[in-house]
Nucleic acid binder design. Structure first.
Length: 244
DNA sequence: AACCTCGCCAACCGCTGCTCG
DNA sequence: ACGAGCAGCGGTTGGCGAGGT
């Protein structure tokens, strides 16, 4: 299928976003939503292609996005889910509310992959010979849309409810679990979740009936997806119960 | 102090799958 | 049933900054 290039190269801006562009995009989405990414930049008066706008919103400007370093629990979760699903970053991201697939992908390639590789080596060498991740750089990232130190930091002004919540966040909210204004997962959540996944992966990813997935072993990716969806639904139930 | 090397991250590119006419 | 258009996804890259020499 032949398709037109995602954007006419003529006249469309590329590269890092400025604070003004960020604000324009955010303001437009807050007002009109983003039902049509392709038409959005034109309507908003942005010289960007829709794809670029979508990426910027998803990865940076969404109000429900969580910045800052990944916790060890989050990293463990990524490792676990990646072991099950492979490079399905968006699926993994759906398990980590507030984290984007791009961010997770970056973390995987820069940290987790190496960590796993080094841990699989017998002598445990290959320690990072360079600096540790610079502290709080990610947390401050929102303050500086790339080229501009965003004193305006658009994300901070977005206290309105998320236009596009990740499925996990919304499903957890549906369970009635507390704060919808800012979704937070405490350590116990991950401990329980990971414990469940460890249990099931040990004896059992084969025994899918643990989670009511019928028709035998989850050999297909759909079954795996069902497994993880079920897993997180149950995990959210646990969290809900723990708050009673 | 200057240069070099490397890690991190935002953004781009191209493909895939879904939806709609 | 088919094709076109679109959003979404994953791989890759380039710029920048920090640490090392």
């Amino acid at each position: 299928m032949v398709r037109a290039p995602c954007c006419e190269k003529m006249g469309l801006k590329r590269g890092p976003w400025t604070a003004e562009e960020d604000m324009t995009l955010v303001a437009h989405i807050e007002q009109h939503g983003h039902s049509n990414w392709r038409a959005l930049p034109k309507q908003a008066g942005l010289l960007r292609c829709g794809k670029s706008c979508r990426l910027r919103w998803i990865n940076y400007l969404r109000p429900d996005i969580k910045r800052g370093n990944f916790t060890s629990d989050e990293e463990e979760a990524i490792i676990q889910v990646h072991a099950m699903l492979g490079n399905r970053w968006s699926t993994i991201a759906a398990r980590l509310p507030g984290r984007t697939d791009n961010e997770i992908k970056n973390v995987w390639h820069t940290h987790l992959k190496k960590r796993l590789e080094s841990s699989s080596k017998p002598s445990g060498q290959a320690a990072p010979k360079r600096k540790a991740k610079k502290p709080a750089v990610a947390a401050s990232a929102l303050e500086g849309p790339t080229s501009e130190p965003a004193s305006s930091s658009p994300g901070q002004s977005l206290s309105t409810s998320s236009a596009t919540g990740y499925s996990m966040a919304s499903s957890l909210e549906n369970t009635g679990s507390s704060s919808s204004e800012e979704f937070q997962i405490d350590d116990s959540f991950w401990s329980e979740t990971l414990a469940m996944s460890a249990d099931s992966s040990g004896s059992g990813m084969e025994s899918s009936d643990t989670f009511g997935v019928d028709s035998g072993a989850p050999s297909s990716s759909n079954d795996e997806m069902d497994f993880w969806v079920t897993l997180f639904m149950q995990a959210s139930d646990i969290q809900s119960l723990s708050q009673i």
